[in-house]
Protein backbone atom coordinates (compact mmCIF):
# COMPACT_ATOMS: atom_id res chain seq x y z
CA UNK A 1 0.00 0.00 0.00
CA UNK A 2 1.57 3.27 -1.07
CA UNK A 3 0.82 6.66 0.35
CA UNK A 4 1.58 9.89 -1.45
CA UNK A 5 2.87 12.80 0.57
CA UNK A 6 3.76 16.10 -1.07
CA UNK A 7 7.43 15.29 -1.57
CA UNK A 8 7.64 11.58 -0.85
CA UNK A 9 6.08 8.34 -1.99
CA UNK A 10 6.04 5.85 0.85
CA UNK A 11 5.36 2.12 0.45
CA UNK A 12 5.29 -0.61 3.08
CA UNK A 13 7.36 -3.65 2.10
CA UNK A 14 6.81 -6.02 4.99
CA UNK A 15 8.54 -4.22 7.84
CA UNK A 16 10.56 -1.92 5.63
CA UNK A 17 9.30 1.51 4.57
CA UNK A 18 10.39 2.29 1.03
CA UNK A 19 10.61 6.03 0.48
CA UNK A 20 10.97 7.52 -3.00
CA UNK A 21 11.51 11.22 -3.61
CA UNK A 22 9.15 13.19 -5.82
CA UNK A 23 11.79 15.89 -6.38
CA UNK A 24 14.59 15.47 -8.87
CA UNK A 25 16.56 18.23 -7.14
CA UNK A 26 17.01 18.17 -3.37
CA UNK A 27 18.87 21.42 -3.04
CA UNK A 28 17.20 24.32 -1.33
CA UNK A 29 16.43 24.60 2.33
CA UNK A 30 12.66 24.90 2.01
CA UNK A 31 12.44 21.69 -0.01
CA UNK A 32 14.78 19.93 2.42
CA UNK A 33 12.84 21.13 5.45
CA UNK A 34 9.59 19.77 4.00
CA UNK A 35 11.21 16.42 3.15
CA UNK A 36 12.67 16.24 6.65
CA UNK A 37 9.25 16.80 8.21
CA UNK A 38 7.64 14.13 6.03
CA UNK A 39 10.42 11.67 6.82
CA UNK A 40 10.00 12.36 10.55
CA UNK A 41 6.33 11.37 10.25
CA UNK A 42 7.31 8.12 8.47
CA UNK A 43 9.84 7.25 11.19
CA UNK A 44 7.46 8.18 14.02
CA UNK A 45 4.78 5.86 12.61
CA UNK A 46 7.10 2.88 12.73
CA UNK A 47 7.54 0.80 15.86
CA UNK A 48 11.04 -0.44 15.04
CA UNK A 49 11.55 1.19 11.71
CA UNK A 50 13.63 -0.06 8.87
CA UNK A 51 13.81 2.60 6.20
CA UNK A 52 14.97 2.35 2.60
CA UNK A 53 15.47 5.62 0.73
CA UNK A 54 15.52 5.22 -3.04
CA UNK A 55 17.24 8.02 -4.97
CA UNK A 56 16.23 6.74 -8.40
CA UNK A 57 14.49 10.01 -9.34
CA UNK A 58 17.09 12.29 -7.79
CA UNK A 59 19.54 14.18 -10.01
CA UNK A 60 20.89 16.86 -7.65
CA UNK A 61 21.71 16.90 -3.95
CA UNK A 62 23.20 19.67 -1.78
CA UNK A 63 25.22 19.60 1.43
CA UNK A 64 22.05 20.58 3.30
CA UNK A 65 20.40 17.41 1.98
CA UNK A 66 23.35 15.37 3.26
CA UNK A 67 22.83 16.98 6.65
CA UNK A 68 19.19 15.97 6.56
CA UNK A 69 20.21 12.35 5.86
CA UNK A 70 22.61 12.34 8.81
CA UNK A 71 19.88 13.63 11.12
CA UNK A 72 17.49 11.01 9.74
CA UNK A 73 20.02 8.20 10.30
CA UNK A 74 20.36 9.19 13.95
CA UNK A 75 16.58 9.32 14.37
CA UNK A 76 16.11 5.87 12.82
CA UNK A 77 18.88 4.36 14.92
CA UNK A 78 17.45 5.88 18.11
CA UNK A 79 14.39 3.73 17.39
CA UNK A 80 16.64 0.68 16.85
CA UNK A 81 15.85 0.73 13.16
CA UNK A 82 18.17 0.65 10.16
CA UNK A 83 18.48 3.12 7.30
CA UNK A 84 19.66 2.05 3.86
CA UNK A 85 20.03 4.05 0.65
CA UNK A 86 19.70 2.78 -2.91
CA UNK A 87 19.64 3.74 -6.61
CA UNK A 88 22.09 6.63 -6.24
CA UNK A 89 23.26 7.85 -9.62
CA UNK A 90 27.03 8.14 -10.24
CA UNK A 91 27.12 11.94 -9.99
CA UNK A 92 25.40 11.93 -6.62
CA UNK A 93 27.40 8.95 -5.39
CA UNK A 94 30.48 11.09 -6.05
CA UNK A 95 29.08 13.65 -3.58
CA UNK A 96 28.88 10.89 -0.96
CA UNK A 97 32.43 9.79 -1.76
CA UNK A 98 33.91 13.30 -1.58
CA UNK A 99 32.34 13.86 1.84
CA UNK A 100 33.15 10.24 2.84
CA UNK A 101 29.55 9.73 3.83
CA UNK A 102 29.59 6.55 1.75
CA UNK A 103 31.46 5.14 4.78
CA UNK A 104 28.70 5.88 7.27
CA UNK A 105 25.64 5.15 5.11
CA UNK A 106 24.65 1.65 4.02
CA UNK A 107 24.35 2.17 0.26
CA UNK A 108 23.08 -0.43 -2.24
CA UNK A 109 22.92 -0.30 -6.02
CA UNK A 110 19.22 -1.21 -6.22
CA UNK A 111 16.07 -1.46 -4.12
CA UNK A 112 16.10 -5.23 -4.55
CA UNK A 113 19.61 -5.60 -3.16
CA UNK A 114 18.85 -3.24 -0.29
CA UNK A 115 15.67 -5.18 0.57
CA UNK A 116 17.58 -8.44 0.50
CA UNK A 117 20.22 -7.03 2.84
CA UNK A 118 17.56 -6.19 5.44
CA UNK A 119 16.64 -9.88 5.47
CA UNK A 120 20.24 -11.10 5.60
CA UNK A 121 21.32 -9.05 8.63
Amino acid sequence: MASQAARLKVSDMGGVSLVEFADRKILDELCIHEIQEELAVVVDKQSAGNLLLSFKNVEHLSSAALGMLITLKKKVEEKKGRLKLSDINPQIFEVFKITRLNKIFDIHPSQEKARASFQES
Binding site: S62, S63, A64, L66, G67, M68, I70, T71, K74, V95, I98, T99, R100, L101, K103, I104
Partner: peptide, 18 residues
Protein backbone atom coordinates in the same frame (compact mmCIF):
# COMPACT_ATOMS: atom_id res chain seq x y z
CA UNK B 1 37.29 19.25 7.95
CA UNK B 2 33.90 17.49 7.86
CA UNK B 3 35.48 14.15 6.96
CA UNK B 4 37.43 13.94 10.21
CA UNK B 5 36.27 11.80 13.17
CA UNK B 6 34.12 13.91 15.45
CA UNK B 7 32.82 15.93 12.53
CA UNK B 8 31.68 13.33 10.00
CA UNK B 9 28.32 12.76 11.66
CA UNK B 10 27.55 16.45 12.01
CA UNK B 11 24.74 17.63 9.75
CA UNK B 12 26.50 20.86 8.69
CA UNK B 13 29.81 22.06 7.28
CA UNK B 14 30.17 20.37 3.89
CA UNK B 15 29.29 23.22 1.53
CA UNK B 16 32.79 24.67 1.14
CA UNK B 17 34.27 21.20 0.73
CA UNK B 18 31.87 20.43 -2.14
Amino acid sequence: DPTQPGFIDRPHGRGIML
